[in-house]
Amino acid sequence: MRIGVLLAAVALAASACSVQGGSADKSAAAAGYPNKPVEFTVPTDPGGSTDLLTRALAKSIEQPLGVKAVVVNKPGANGKIAGKDVFGSKPDGYRVAVMPQSLFAIGPLMLNDADPVKLTDMTFIKGLAVEDYVLVVPADSKYRTLKDLAGASDVKYGTTGPGTGSQLSQTLLFGLAKTKAAPVPFDGGAPTVTAVLGGKVDAASVQIAEAYKQVQAGKLRALAVFADKRIEAMPDVPTAKESGYDVVVDQRRFIAGPAGLPAEVRDKLAAAVDKAVASPEYNEVLKANYIGRWDADGDAVGTQLNESLKRFEKLAQDLGIDLKAQQ
């Protein structure tokens, strides 16, 4: 009896009010978007560069958007958890997610996943950032150049995890050089850098910000960057391409909503993001983390993801490397 009354009350409350916050914002999209807080889901734990980037973005986007912006962390499975959740929700523009390129361009090549987040699950809103990878060795390492390392007989290299750009860049590099090399996957950038500093592995490919200070302090030596051309933060470090190994791998971040987002909503969000990424706070975070801006509109994001996937796939095929076996 009491339960019946209770259920009735619950049903009443549910029909009368809309639920805000949390992760199931399922209220109807009203005309005049936006008229309530927009939620930005970050697919990582608090504190990493993606999280900081999104928080700076959310702070700067409140003014152009005219409503509050809330940041929610849903870490897990390189973004899959957040992606599944946000892109499975209603396409009303109140829930968007920051996604990494690696989930779509590297994960499918290296991991077996029967139920991945697909490109068609998303409406791309805007590109945000691009981060490069640098190959480092301990300062007292006998390997002074990329050629030395590639010519070594037995290399143990650290990666920041399975299905990451760190793993892919080195797999391709040592594959091209035909070096006998074994990967040792760590859980993220910091433990990987620690292992290189302690000489537990011979080399590792990590994002610039993770190694920059150590390189500057002379504790690590940077052998190569996996970028198209030399990068501003480390102008003296050659690209892998210059050393004869055409490996270009980067990590990109973009912002996307569920598939089927109305065009006006998407344009409004994109315009607001444009204004937010011009803010000093946002650029401060980019600068501090040696992250580059990625000014791509929604369609260009989709094209980039597809191209990266095809390029990596072809590279691996040409080399005859089975990426799924290379972990």
Partner: peptide, 14 residues
Amino acid sequence: FGALLIQGIAPGPM
């Protein structure tokens, strides 16, 4: 670490 970075300070050996 992130907080220090935002403040323009890179924690490191120096």
